[in-house]
């Protein structure tokens, strides 16, 4: 309908504009379900909580759990790991954040982070690197005992998932 010069019709004719506009709305409306179907479906959205029993995790041990298809690191930190993390001045950090902000008050030895490097999504290796934390084998990022990035290229600290202590030895993630 682009070329309507023939037979003396007027391009600005209201009828043509109205028809074209309604048609455009219709096409947009038809596209929406095809885009909308891409989003996580109801069964995926429902699988959003995972319960973790902390009691079998030894001091100094990092255990990996699965939540929403992603690895979750649960680190039962030794006192020295906590001290080390809290002794670092914030201005030395790439993404400044205190250790206290990254753990639940009263449960300071438990660090719970999403085990995905904030650079390009690899899973970092525990107890490696120079900062008593994690080392990412893909591009060499290093994280400390609070899961904070200390050596790039990763721009951000390991993310903390939403979680709660339901008892002293049990957390619910999500």
């Amino acid at each position: 309908m682009a070329h309507t010069e023939t037979s003396g019709t007027n391009r600005r004719d209201f009828l043509y504009i109205a028809t074209g506009a309604v048609g455009a709305v219709g096409v947009a409306g038809m596209i929406w379900p095809f885009v909308s179907q891409l989003q996580p479906d109801a069964s995926v959205l429902a699988l959003s909580t995972t319960e973790v029993d902390l009691s079998p995790i030894q001091e100094g041990q990092i255990v990996t759990f699965m939540w929403r298809g992603k690895p979750i690191f649960v680190f039962n930190r030794l006192a020295k790991d906590v001290e080390l993390a809290r002794a670092v001045p914030l201005n030395q950090l790439i993404d400044p954040q205190t250790d206290q902000d990254r753990v639940k008050a009263g449960h300071d030895k438990w660090l719970v982070v999403i085990g995905i490097c904030t650079h390009l999504g690899c899973v970092p290796l525990g107890h490696q690197g120079n900062y008593d934390g994690w080392f990412c084998p893909c591009h060499g990022s290093q994280y400390d005992s609070s899961g904070r990035v200390r050596v790039g290229p990763a721009p951000l600290n390991l993310a903390v998932p939403p979680y709660n202590f339901v008892s002293d030895s049990k957390i619910v993630i999500g």
């Binding site: 929406w32 095809f34 909308s36 179907q37 995926v44």
Partner: peptide, 28 residues
Amino acid sequence: AMHYTAFAPISFARVEHIMRDVSFGWLL
């Protein structure tokens, strides 16, 4: 086809998954 799986034990359930869980799956 993005939501379907051709595997005899689950194909029926996958179609129902499309009908129930996928956004606008019933429409498609």
